[in-house]
């Protein structure tokens, strides 16, 4: 409710509709074939980050990126896709209305034009846009070519781990795999051994309520692993879903580490070539409101 996009409310409000339209149309277009998908994903994901995430402390991109990746992961067609678009448009109207009401009296000097003008390869923000966009797009591309069954899970790990701040990235990647394994074990014990099938719905509801009190990334990841596996057993056996979840997380963490290292190397080399080694880069430009 307190979130803002970091630029003028009258311009940010219609951009929410644009973001929802990207979530509605982008994933469907990207699934046409891997090569078209690569181009569509680059355009859509970069646009989501630029439009929603100028103020990186708000993490506005998370909801739209999760929507994009999940709509891609759970593709539908025909009448159900039509319903998905309608549902997204209704959601967009509600969010736009709430956003405008909450932010109409706040003054922001920055315009949408400024947001685009501030895209600069030497800024930490733009470097993060590039790193996250290209990593997710390449994983999706290679995953599609290899027919990996749950690319979405790898991408959600990357979304969670590739953050603008290196320290946060380091802390998250250390706890991701152990928390995922714990969540998977908990899921297996609860749903396969301890609780009879007729009580599963109650457990899902209680787990959902419990998740509202979680603030620690480690515990949240255990919960996410648990709830993702609940959804996955519709498609796989519990054992296969568990193995796939753990493997996807391991791949996601490995890719996030390698990608961060390689991109940092590239940005440092680029900065040295451009500025001859002076520290003009790594800035978060224009933090005014």
């Amino acid at each position: 409710m307190q979130n803002n996009m970091g630029y003028q409310t009258k311009q940010a409000t219609p951009m929410i509709l644009v973001l929802f339209l990207i979530v509605a149309i982008g994933p469907k277009l990207s699934l046409m074939n891997p090569y078209i998908g690569l181009v569509v994903n680059v355009i859509c994901i970069f646009s989501i980050l630029v439009l929603s995430s100028h103020n990186i402390t708000m993490s506005n991109h998370v909801a739209f990126m999760m929507g994009y990746l999940m709509c891609q992961g759970y593709d539908v067609s025909g009448v159900i896709y039509g319903k998905r678009v309608v549902s997204l448009l209704i959601s967009a109207m509600i969010v736009m209305g709430m956003y405008y009401v909450m932010n109409r009296k706040k003054e922001y000097k920055r315009t949408l034009k400024d947001v685009f003008q501030e895209i600069d390869i030497h800024s930490t923000r733009t470097q993060w846009y590039i790193k996250l966009t290209l990593t997710i797009c390449m994983v999706t591309f290679v995953g599609n070519l290899l027919h990996y069954p749950r690319i979405m899970w790898i991408n959600l790990v990357i979304l969670s781990l590739v953050t603008p701040l290196e320290e946060e990235h380091r802390l998250r990647r250390m706890s991701r795999v152990p928390a995922t394994i714990l969540g998977a074990i908990l899921f297996f014990m609860v749903f396969e051994w301890w609780i009879p099938t007729e009580y599963h719905q109650i457990i899902i509801l209680l787990a959902g309520f419990g998740s509202m009190f979680i603030t620690s990334y480690f515990i949240k990841t255990i919960y996410n692993s648990f709830s993702a596996l609940i959804a996955a057993v519709l498609l796989f056996s519990a054992k296969d879903a568990m193995v796939l979840r753990v493997i996807s997380n391991l791949i996601g963490v490995a890719i996030a580490i390698v990608s961060s290292y390689l991109f940092q190397l590239f940005f440092n080399t680029f900065r040295n070539v451009t500025f001859g080694g002076t520290n003009h880069g790594s800035k978060l430009n224009g933090e005014y409101h």
Partner: peptide, 30 residues
């Protein structure tokens, strides 16, 4: 937090009813 949670449960049930369980991801994102 209980009213928020009950709203979410109600919202998801309505969302699934009108837009189908295949589109529950949209409800989750919203």
């Amino acid at each position: 937090k209980l009213p928020v949670f009950l709203f979410c449960v109600g919202y998801m049930s309505l969302h699934n009813h009108f837009f189908g369980t295949d589109n529950s991801v949209v409800g989750v994102v919203f």
